[in-house]
Design a protein around this nucleic acid. Structure first.
Lengths: 341, 341
DNA sequence: TTGTAAGCGTTATCAG
DNA sequence: CTGATAACGCTTACAA
């Protein structure tokens, strides 16, 4: 039906193998026949059948992407499209295609990954959401199949190539920033502790307080969902304390938006009564009222480096595992000030 | 290297073709051998090589998804992850895989699509962003390759299967809703007129005004980018008029957020001084201040129906083209009230 | 009900 | 520099 390599060969008066070599731009083909073959390809509108090619060459030039479960709320966070953008760019540059995988349960996701990997649809896999004791990771490691993780692995850190921010340091800096403003009562509103990012940031928060000899109060530490009213409950809880904090670090701009609303309802002014720093620096951050001081964690770059390095991993069999740390940057806006007396 | 159909055949003491039939669950195989073969597959951890299978069967059980250009700002709108979620679900249900495609320019995108289609990596394609005179559409139509468009085609409406909202009616209803509140001066802040959705909504807006014998003022109609400060410029412009509107319809929640901010800066209170209705009903809508009355256009369903119907198209050669209209619903929150005297 | 064998469209190995 | 020819792993007539 479709035009094949044989049709091209016939028209150009060469063997199919020669056409194949022209496609691969082999050096061992005379410039003259190359021209002739290329013209024939053009003329016939030839495009190689990728399935045949993959089958013969035992490789696919495609990367698999494991998305967060579609039931996951986190899916609505703009984090996902941004990281995808980065991944996509890194792949495109090396002419790799992207293959998507989801599932409603962990089991479904694992099955989809297995199919994709064993079915040889992809040469490598990018993981977005590492959970504690992730079965997908165990599976890939076991088979020694190339993959990179965006975020920090729960175990075997040294054996898993991953790209992450230095979340500990980022949060430490943020906390120090607030301390330097004169804040002593600083609250922490983070996501679930089953995410490494939360663990790291919590630790950064604690370290900063300790270094400044500020007491760590457990009432100041709240873990909530990243999204939605999560922030609202958290902030009510924490502001109802006898001695409420004068500053807050929040895990995510989206959540910070909820925080801002609740504060408004409670009649608490930002930054006059309460300072806030959040993370991610989404468009949201500059559109909220007041605009949020937020840590830009370079989401695009996270994705870009992930695919870029996965390709390296795929193409060089003995590439060592790596840990890639993407830089972050505090973007100062209007949600912080000195505490009131 | 990997375990193949032959290994299974050998272990189960049957011919490879028999194994193939077992995989396809052919009725012409005895239950007994089915058991035996399945056991062998299990034992060896067999998974079919999808490239070989695709090559032999000339079909892929995969759908291609053309994403908005990664340079596109629209990419940051939560619309994308939501529609992807729907698409993914529809595909998963029928055991179809998803293949992604992007590019930085229209040319790159077209090339990627051609590669994907002619390379026979997918059986059908879902398009997200139809532009005027879309070359991807022309290409697919020309080749008679199955595809569905999310949104409304610019031309050949009857010949292109697409899933869309009734944007004209939705906007008409919204405008009538505001009129019923007593508003006579109603502004329109929409996206670029190169999007069909804008054209449809603008028309709905005009129809509602006409039906109510309200004059259509061109100064009340502003077209801006969907995102970012777009809203802010637009609202400044429109509120600076001698007789500013008492109500606004806005194309998108995200944009409405920008509008809210600017209004706040201008000292204009919502809904007391100005009523607002927006579209999409993102999480944002309930988190903004005040919470936005917004039209839920069922983004998930848009995606879900797209992949579901694309699969029908792919599997039934002579399926007629369809137009699928997804329902919408006005979600009333706190951004509307009667106009002041 | 099962086996044989001919593709599917490439790439890769050997000759020449 | 180029051409045969054998894989690659599976599906699918056609036989049996």
């Amino acid at each position: 039906m479709a035009v094949t390599i044989k049709d091209v060969a016939r028209l150009a008066n060469v063997a199919p193998s020669t056409v194949s070599r022209v496609i691969a731009d082999s050096t061992r083909i005379s410039e003259e026949t190359k021209q002739r073959v290329r013209k024939a390809m053009e003329q016939l509108g030839y495009h190689p059948n990728l399935n045949a090619r993959n089958l013969a060459s035992q490789s696919t030039k495609a990367l698999g992407l494991v998305m967060p479960s579609s039931k996951d709320v986190g899916f609505q966070n703009p984090f996902f499209p941004m990281v995808l953008q980065g991944i996509s760019e890194g792949a495109q540059e090396k002419n790799y295609a992207l293959h998507l995988t989801t599932g409603k349960s962990d089991r479904e996701i694992l099955d989809a990954v297995i199919q994709m990997v064993q079915g040889q649809r992809v040469d490598g896999v990018i993981l977005l959401n590492s959970k504690v004791d992730d079965r997908v990771i165990s599976y890939l490691k076991e088979r020694n199949f190339p993959f990179v993780l965006i975020g920090k692995p729960y175990k075997n850190i040294e054996e898993i190539t991953h790209v992450d921010n230095d979340n500990l340091r980022a949060m430490k800096e943020v906390t120090e920033y607030l301390i330097s403003y004169g804040h002593q009562q600083i609250g922490f509103i983070g996501g679930s502790l089953e995410f490494m990012v939360t663990i790291d940031r919590l630790q950064g928060y604690k370290q900063a307080l300790q270094n400044a000899s500020i007491e760590i109060k457990s009432e100041y530490i709240v873990h909530e969902q990243f999204l939605r009213e999560g922030g609202q409950d958290a902030v009510r809880e924490i502001m109802a304390l006898d001695q409420p904090p004068t500053a807050l670090v929040v895990a995510d701009d989206f959540m910070a938006l909820g925080v801002l609303n609740t504060l408004d309802e409670l009649g608490i002014k930002v930054p006059d009564d309460l300072s806030i720093v959040s993370f991610n620096n989404l468009l949201l951050a500059e559109m909220s009222k007041p605009p949020l001081t937020s840590v830009d964690i370079n989401i695009f770059e996270l994705g870009y480096q992930a695919s870029k390095n996965l390709i390296v991993l795929v193409e060089n069999k003995n590439e060592p595992t790596k840990r890639l740390i993407i830089s972050h940057r505090l973007i100062e806006r209007l949600s912080c000030s000195r505490p009131k007396q």
